[in-house]
Amino acid sequence: MTSSPNTVLRLALLVFAALIVQISGFERILVLGGQLDLVALVVAAIALSGGSVPGALTGFSAGLLLDLALGQNLGVSSLVLTIVGYGVGRYAELRDPGHGLIPIPVAVVATAGYGLGIAVVSFMLEIGASVSALVFRDMLLTMLFNAIVALPVFALVRRLLRSALLVDPRARRRRAPVRSGPIGLRGLGL
């Protein structure tokens, strides 16, 4: 991913919009007690398209903004989302996934990683109350909802960042068939 001012501005606007929509909109829309987590999804989408460094930087910024906006302990969300963004980005760099459905498992794993990460850090910090097993039910519901909306969200993020991407996996997948070759084999349909 190129790091032009235009790209940075787009990323910042994307993360900011996702955060506002999440904390002022989706937080009130509960289905079966669960809800969508757009912030983790957008971080994963940017990391999958841009790689580990943009993923980690986006995760850190999104987490910091989340903690600042909600008066939470600073550093908790940024620590977890940095690792989620880096992990998804490294997966994209190592495996170079081109399959059209790859956003679904990536969204599920990123959401699970974010939920578990926050739980672990919270336990290490100051949780004095007992914890219900329903926490895992809510986490599973969030993973399910994020999986459902993963394809359009990842497509939207990729579309917004297309000009900054060095390699677009979808474009590579749609590469035109080779029509040239050794002179003797042309036109034989081999």
Binding site: Q22, I23, S24, F26, E27, R28, Q35, D37, V39, L66, A69, L70, Q72, N73, G115, I118, A119, S122, I127, V135, D138
Partner: peptide, 8 residues
């Protein structure tokens, strides 16, 4: 606004 996690 409200926090997206059950931990806060």
């Amino acid at each position: 606004a409200r926090s997206p996690t059950v931990w806060y």
